[in-house]
Write a protein that binds this DNA or RNA. Structure first.
Lengths: 368, 368
DNA sequence: CATCCCCGTTGCAACGCTTCAATCGAGGCC
DNA sequence: GGCCTCGATTGAAGCGTTGCAACGGGGATG
């Protein structure tokens, strides 16, 4: 077919397409009313479907002039390749599934962001699902994503028992990677954050700013991360030859709980008994600072340094911006994706349990 | 085939499958190493692939005994239907795409939750994508979801200009529904929340508790929702024959901004000039309350009532739990899905712009 | 006992795409 | 000038599933 001819046919088809979509060449007969397929593009460009496919997937094999012609046809017809058909041939999609257990928690949002970035660099995309920490929904999404033949699955689970259930039930063929849960049993890769190190970091920071009489405000020790953070604080203090002046475990770890603890602690702080507080969450820390601010005679950070945990918005958006331990959420997501791809590309892959370290973010509440 | 025979073949195949996966009957030759297809199940159950398909999709057509046999085979082989093949035949998937502009904002998380619930009831599922409000990412996800032939697209956009871009560029065939953005141009369905009504509601609540000297604390009027809330406050006051004692527009609407406003307002409140504050966000309100709590002689809610907006965690998790205007995020998501399905089922569908009303949540900060 | 009917089951084609071997044509080389 | 090479293009097969028309057999009916 010569160039003049092809241009003419482009024009003709263009007009046709504009006046009546239903008469477009090669319109599908059943199912999708979608209309435009690779065959239509091929016809319009005056090439075979294979060539169109090559333009899309192996453009180095195609002559420049052809590429141009095909791309014009694609544009004209508004052709969008059918992902289902692609995945069917390929045997899997170009997506990774990510099941999040709590979208309300910014750590998980960070994880998602990191995973998306890493996936992007590898030409993959991330499909998010929100389980709200409910086993039943985790299950459903794992199944759904398995059916859609994702490349692999990233799972954030709060509860170790869920992990056993899911692992037992899942029929996922590709990699299954656990995020934010450390499990070294060699059946899966896991990526988690070292809460013990985080606790130690927080205490060490207060020590480094000259505080010696520290209190730890935790929460119910049934929360494993909290227990780990407490252990880290103890370790850091011990290695400086010290021990916590007070360890307090409020019922929960919200701002209101922190406020109550703050009221309780205020007299001891005013008395100089305590000059540093490590709180197991930013909300807790924010509540403590708020209570202290309402107590005449106590100034943060002059009289007492307070450090939180999580790098919540609450940590910076406050009259006295909070120092905090930041969890590397994005890195967690990124690492997850990298491991996933590594595992899916390499059959000899050995599962590993990666631990990431948190970092201290210094703001006003621990200044000296 | 008689029953005895079929049971025997089940057993035989079971053994075979266990000892060597690669010799499973009808294993695929190219592409997916996935292995088990509908053909394998059929062979093992001693029926045709069509029958297996019927068990999966039209079980009322299949004899009870057959169902049981097929299900056992499915279980034995760990068969998972291939979603790509299904979508290919159907012409579209059983998913709805939801592009969120800010996962950090709990309103959007609520929207997602509502959408998931509604989709669930209709046997559909929701695929989440997080654009972080960036046009480039909105674009990519719209394309990605279009390629995967979702049933339709739910889009939350902050910016009206993005909406025009996306609308122009999108090749999505199914419905495209805009959430949290009111646009009555008849090209799309939209679902939004009436911020003007919310503002009016907040003011009316303070009036109803006997306050008469109200201040409105907004933010930059370039934010349309804020401007609308302010307008609502004005209207409610006007219809009571009143006007705002003060209108303040801090630079932004975070807790720190609220704290500054609170310091500024404290003298006027102490002087009895102001007895009620409507804040355009909960963070703002929380900051204000916090500043007032630090001012001797001012008590919330006795001396001044404060109401926020958004029903953030910040609203309840505070020493003085905040009254607030709750946005019906879940309802928004639900309505979006319903409209989407309605539009996709009914070709004669007329686009509509639905507005939902917020509600007041009364807590301690406006008690009387 | 023959006929009809209906339930349960089946074979075939099609969904839209990619891959791979085969083909074509234009130069380059001897 | 004939032959070979190599890049560009193509036709056919196949991915795993579903829908549909057709089929077979057993029970009810006359």
């Amino acid at each position: 077919m010569d160039k003049v001819g092809s241009v003419a046919s482009l024009q003709a088809a263009y007009t046709r397409g504009m006046t009546s979509a239903t008469t477009a060449p090669g319109a599908t007969k059943r199912g999708a009313v979608d209309g435009v397929g690779i065959t239509d593009v091929a016809a319009l460009a005056g090439v075979s479907p294979s060539t169109v496919s090559n333009v899309l997937n192996h453009r180095e094999r195609v002559a420049a002039a052809t590429i141009e012609r095909v791309e014009r046809a694609i544009e004209l017809l508004g052709y969008v390749p059918n992902g289902a058909a692609r995945s069917l041939v390929a045997g899997h999609s170009r997506s990774i599934g990510l099941v999040l257990s709590d979208l309300g928690n910014s750590l998980f949002v960070d994880i998602a962001r990191g995973a998306e970035r890493a996936a992007d660099e590898l030409g993959l995309s991330v499909v998010l699902a929100n389980s709200d920490g409910r086993l039943e929904r985790e299950d459903r999404y794992v199944e759904l994503l398995t059916e859609s033949r994702v490349r692999g699955l990233l799972l954030t689970l709060n509860d170790e028992s869920h992990f056993r259930e899911i692992a037992a039930r899942s029929r996922q063929r590709g990699p299954l990677i656990l995020l934010n849960l450390h499990a070294d049993d060699g059946r899966f890769c896991t990526v988690s954050i070292d809460n013990e190190a985080g606790g130690a970091l927080a205490a060490a920071h207060l020590l480094a700013t000259g505080r010696r009489r520290l209190a730890f405000v935790g929460g119910p020790d049934s929360l494993q991360p909290i227990a780990d953070r407490r252990a880290g604080v103890r370790r850091a203090l011990a290695s400086a030859g010290l021990a916590a002046v007070a360890e307090i475990g409020p019922e929960w770890i919200n701002r209101a709980d922190g406020w109550q603890v703050g009221r309780m602690l205020a007299p001891r702080i005013a008395a100089g008994e305590i000059d540093g507080v490590v709180a197991a969450s930013d909300l807790l820390a924010a509540g403590i600072v708020q209570a202290l601010a309402e107590t005449p005679g106590i100034r943060v950070p002059e009289d007492v340094g307070v450090i939180g945990y999580d790098n919540n918005q609450a940590a910076w958006d406050a009259p006295v911006p909070l120092s905090t331990v930041a969890q590397p959420g994005e890195a967690l997501g990124e690492t997850g994706v990298r491991l996933l791809v590594a595992e899916s590309d390499d059959p000899t892959h050995r599962h590993q349990a990666v631990r990431l370290d948190p970092t201290v973010v210094v703001r006003r509440s621990t200044e000296r």
